[in-house]
């Protein structure tokens, strides 16, 4: 069941990115929904599952993309690794933290895609509007990720309380909607 749900979400992300985004207004500002999903899996799921999803999703995205092969996989795997490492050091249990990491995740993905392509291909030029586009993408990711987390929390029961201290112990949401006093 979990596998089916995770696969469904991955499939939706791929379809959204490859078929739905062009029909949205201002598609250049739409962030990759895989970022919140990987953060979610890294924070709430087991490591095996988080890395599995990151690698699978990354390979599919690489297959569809015109970017040098492996960039998506690289970005997703490093993102998952970083998020898991961060969650062992600090408690990611507040909404603003989720928003911050979502924004940073989008920034990281774009940096990997643009930066590594620019490094590998000397003829590649970073678009002049890149900063503005990445900024808007980060902002949108920060605003929407808590809602996506709530949605994913209902859809993908990957909760595993034994693997991380910051994770829920009672099946409630792992993050708080108000800041600590």
């Amino acid at each position: 069941m979990r596998f089916f749900q995770t696969t469904t979400v991955c499939l939706f992300i791929v379809i959204f990115n490859t078929a739905m985004v062009p029909f949205l207004f201002f598609p250049q500002y739409v962030f990759d929904p895989a970022v919140p999903f990987i953060l979610f899996m890294s924070l709430l799921g087991s490591g095996r599952r988080a890395f599995g999803v990151s690698a699978g999703l990354g390979l599919v995205m690489d297959g569809f993309s015109g970017a040098p092969f492996g960039l998506y996989t690289t970005a997703y795997l490093w993102m998952a690794a970083a998020m898991r490492q961060v969650s062992t050091l600090i408690r990611v249990d507040q909404v603003w933290m989720i928003q911050l990491f979502a924004g940073l995740g989008v920034l990281f993905e774009d940096m990997v895609l643009l930066g590594m392509t620019a490094l590998m291909d000397p003829g590649f030029r970073i678009p002049p509007t890149a900063a503005e586009r990445i900024g808007v993408q980060m902002l949108l990711a920060a605003v929407l990720t808590p809602f996506l987390f709530s949605l994913l929390y209902r859809m993908v029961p990957t909760w595993n309380p034994s693997t991380n201290e910051s994770r829920s112990r009672s099946g409630t949401k792992p993050w708080r909607t108000t800041s600590k006093g």
Partner: peptide, 13 residues
């Protein structure tokens, strides 16, 4: 049937 998932590269399927 599909477009590049990244917003930086231009391919179609």
């Amino acid at each position: 049937v599909g477009r590049d998932p990244s917003r930086w590269f231009k391919t179609i399927v």
